[in-house]
Design a protein around this nucleic acid. Sequence first.
DNA 1: TATGAATGAGTATTCATTCAT
DNA 2: AATGAATGAATACTCATTCAT
Lengths: 209, 209, 209, 209
Amino acid sequence: MTKLITKKRLSREQSQAQTRECLIQAARQLFVQHGFGGASIRDIAEEAGYSQGAFYSNFPDKEAILLELLRRHMEAEVMQLSSVFATDVLTGDEVLAELDAWALTLHADGDWAMLSIELQLHANRSPAFAAEYGAIWRVHRNALSRFIERLFEHLALVPPAEPGQLAAGFIALAQGLGLQRASIHPDPTGSMIMLFLRGLIASAQVMAK
Amino acid sequence: MTKLITKKRLSREQSQAQTRECLIQAARQLFVQHGFGGASIRDIAEEAGYSQGAFYSNFPDKEAILLELLRRHMEAEVMQLSSVFATDVLTGDEVLAELDAWALTLHADGDWAMLSIELQLHANRSPAFAAEYGAIWRVHRNALSRFIERLFEHLALVPPAEPGQLAAGFIALAQGLGLQRASIHPDPTGSMIMLFLRGLIASAQVMAK
Amino acid sequence: MTKLITKKRLSREQSQAQTRECLIQAARQLFVQHGFGGASIRDIAEEAGYSQGAFYSNFPDKEAILLELLRRHMEAEVMQLSSVFATDVLTGDEVLAELDAWALTLHADGDWAMLSIELQLHANRSPAFAAEYGAIWRVHRNALSRFIERLFEHLALVPPAEPGQLAAGFIALAQGLGLQRASIHPDPTGSMIMLFLRGLIASAQVMAK
Amino acid sequence: MTKLITKKRLSREQSQAQTRECLIQAARQLFVQHGFGGASIRDIAEEAGYSQGAFYSNFPDKEAILLELLRRHMEAEVMQLSSVFATDVLTGDEVLAELDAWALTLHADGDWAMLSIELQLHANRSPAFAAEYGAIWRVHRNALSRFIERLFEHLALVPPAEPGQLAAGFIALAQGLGLQRASIHPDPTGSMIMLFLRGLIASAQVMAK
DNA sequence: TATGAATGAGTATTCATTCAT
DNA sequence: AATGAATGAATACTCATTCAT
């Protein structure tokens, strides 16, 4: 997102918020395209239509803008999942339908897949970043985990493994497919995830009364 | 692996092979630790105990050593898979046991997961590299794909999707789990993969006679 | 020219202009002394009293500073020639006197000869540079060419060859003499040029009415 | 010139002489194409079909092969000029015809023009090289100088300047035109030189009896 | 707040040269 | 005499970061 040239006078705060926003969107785009290491602050600032100095007026360093992106994604993700939880009474088929929709969502936001991998990789290397990242990741996994739990309850089946582990597995699958999608071939991320999920359901045992 | 200071005289060829080997192992280690972009040739050469020039006497550029690592891993992988194919008469259960062993292998080589992701990411960004990488990747997937095909034949089941796609799915899962393992928690990649595989088997239809 | 340490506060623009100027003069000196290939950016920056980064804040690459030097010389050259054209009514002898003065000017700027050769050599090897260089060179030759044309008109003589070719010949002579001057012996470039010019005049035919 | 693969056994000396010759021709070609600084020893050795070590078995360093090229050119040049002097009785017109032929020779050996400039430039920068180069250059100029002297004697004219200076002027002109020829336009070096020479003749005074 | 010139440490890569074979 | 792996210093160029304006 490039700097908007507007005639309306913005208050100081509004104007700063706009600068921040432009920088964040530019960073997002460039991290996705070239990775965290491959995107330079100069390029981010330029893409946003500002100077390098503007970057440092808004963020202490390069890592900070990556964390901001993570924070934003988490917010979106949480909202999405909680909207699924909103309607509490669902049949097993309805839940699967919801999941289908969620899987397609993953597919749609192709950018996020790459960004998510950048985040993960950076966490693997920067302990400071790992702490913040880990916390957010756990929230994400727990949400997915509770979802899976509920799904099996609805179906009156015993999950074939601890729900937390299944959740981690699905996140891994989504990340791995995202990694491939960019280069290998246009692949059906969504349907792949559903395929594995249906497999898990098929192999689950009926719950003991 | 640092340069070995040996008193034994090595022949020319042996000495060169040693240098090459040291550089490759140093590169492997540093690529895993800091990523392709994060590992400098200076560091690789230093870690190996040689000068930067020694690197360029052995490899045309930085990408070349990454490809060499890929080539080596593939050789190992292919040997491993073909050893499973060696004994032709296996019951369904025997094949699953073999697979269990194979899945544990994946887990053992923890480094490879990270390296594999570096490879994939670099391919996503360097078209020249992507060409070479893609070729090797396809070989890998096809080997796995034929394996899956055989497995379902043995079990007299119809695979729930095209074997090539299932293969890609398992590779994605392994990569994604590897990505998590380094930072999140020590998790049982192998058993996760078996879990999904058993699910697929459970959801497959019996083959029509 | 080394960085001037001044106590006076300079405005932003003035300070940048000073940096640029120091770099240009340092580059000029080192290109003359060691050639384009032999002068490193590190040396240029150091000679100017700045960091290498300062160079790249002011010029996109090494070629750019060479072009800047060319541009500057051309401006000076064009101003000089146009001042000769200024007074329109000149007798043949007066024109020759003007030329004598101009030829001595060539001699004065001893450095330029070497720089001019560096420029030409670099153009012979870098097609990108050749394009820019060629354009400026043609302007130079055309100015000289028109001058020669006018001179022969004044003298009512037919030039013994196309003025453009004669201009190229004089430039070649000046460059060749410059090349020798640095090492062989201190020789009077100016008078040599006049000698050849008077020869051409002597061998020219009287213009038909 | 690439290594010749011959079945005939060469004596040790012959074989070394062949290696030397190949290296010299390869160096000649690459110095012309890329300049002295731009041609690497690795490239020269490779072009000749040998290893870098072979270069150092035959020449102490890079400058040595440049000097060897100079020495060879001098031999050729001296032979050429002395063949012109061979026939002692020539009319003025015959001498001009000879000169025409000589001028065309200059044109033909386009390579030498560039090499000559490389030589001159390197002499301007390396005092050690300059000493050797200067000696050879003076021989060349003196030969040309005596030639010009004789020409004017034949024509019974007083040369318009010291013959040594005229000789230097013609060499400069030839070098300058050579410099331009590579990049600017296909130009008539030979005829340009004759044009200037005829001019000098036209402007010369008849010799006092 | 935002600018962007300047810094200094870093990058991949090249090269003349050495030396054990 | 010829090889070519290895060296060490140099090269053009990039980048996150600082700071006077």
